[in-house]
Design a binder for these strands. Sequence first.
DNA 1: CTCCCAACAGGTCAATCATCCTGTTTTTCA
DNA 2: TGAAAAACAGGATGATTGACCTGTTGGGAG
Lengths: 207, 207
Amino acid sequence: MTEHRRTNDPQGVRRRIVDAAYDAFVNQGYIATGMAQLREKASVSGGAMAHHFPAKRDLGLAVIRDRVAEAVQRTWIQPLNGCADAPTAIDRIFEEIIGELMHKDAVSGCPLNNMVMEVSQHDPEMRDILGGVFGAWHDALSAKFKADMASGRLGDLNPSSLATLVIASYSGAMAMAKARQDVGPLIDCRVELARLMAARYRLAAGR
Amino acid sequence: MTEHRRTNDPQGVRRRIVDAAYDAFVNQGYIATGMAQLREKASVSGGAMAHHFPAKRDLGLAVIRDRVAEAVQRTWIQPLNGCADAPTAIDRIFEEIIGELMHKDAVSGCPLNNMVMEVSQHDPEMRDILGGVFGAWHDALSAKFKADMASGRLGDLNPSSLATLVIASYSGAMAMAKARQDVGPLIDCRVELARLMAARYRLAAGR
DNA sequence: CTCCCAACAGGTCAATCATCCTGTTTTTCA
DNA sequence: TGAAAAACAGGATGATTGACCTGTTGGGAG
């Protein structure tokens, strides 16, 4: 009589939880987000939550592995491989992100950075994974610089440290943008990085 | 008989609390730090704590105003004004900070950045103050670039956006260093910024 | 000397936190 | 088809959180 029909959907439920958690962790913080809030947001019962993620830490790890790493891959690494050279790729990535941010009403910061700040001090395992995401990001950018050097034979440039500078300036600009709730810092860094790249790439091309 | 002697020391007690809070907020996070922990760390009673800081938020504001702002002033703005030009100042500041970090056993990150990440989403007032600290930092650096331009007549360079890049790369490098628990990113950024500065400052000097 | 309030002590409080429990239903597999 | 495991429901639980309470004492103002 009473319709107590249920459909088991482990993958779907898990995805809903991780989606809700990613959004909440990035926008309001890992520690600041309660499990009860996530239960309501994802519309899952306490039992389902405990079944998929026995502890909050497991959920944090899943968010990092399934969402944060993917976000870096999608917004940075893939565009990087799709462009002719690093400078144009970097400029387009900044342009894309600035455009997206201007449509939103709040600047929540870089997902990777946000997670790093909160959990890397308390949890060595999370820190290592997040460090690995930074590593993959750095490797991709560094490899692109190297490829540019090989094909376009531009002057001496350290691919590794230059990649670090690009990533650091992006991350830092995001933090500044978050503090000021303004995309200005990102625009500034885009301009300065473009000028820097132009100088480095022009240097050898002129000779 | 029983020695229930007490000495009122409002300034000292307040200072002890703020010191303990600054250390804890920077090293383990604002939200992750409990009031009870701070009470024990600063060796103050609940009554004294409530008297000086009725709410945790008041303590957060005091830490930002009295310690975070001062830290930026001391590590960046003052050295900036004490050096001949911006490039040498930036290089020395990086050198100093890298040296300090290598003596420690953990990289806890930039105090300003740490606070920004955690509180700027929840508290507009804290965010504004933190944004103001970024602003003061940016203004000092920007002014130094401007002064260098006026005295040394180096080529066209945008003091404001270049200052943003320097601050962003420092902040971002700190975040990367925190994630990897390694000063490498800071060393990379120091090298790259030095090269960038040399190029910009040499550009006009050569002509 | 005497008020009187700031300064401090020590404990309580409701709310919220993450976790985990028992019970039920769905699905898988032999 | 039957048994076992996975998936889910709904709530309980103890610990911890930030806030705040009443009472006491120190020290400066008058």
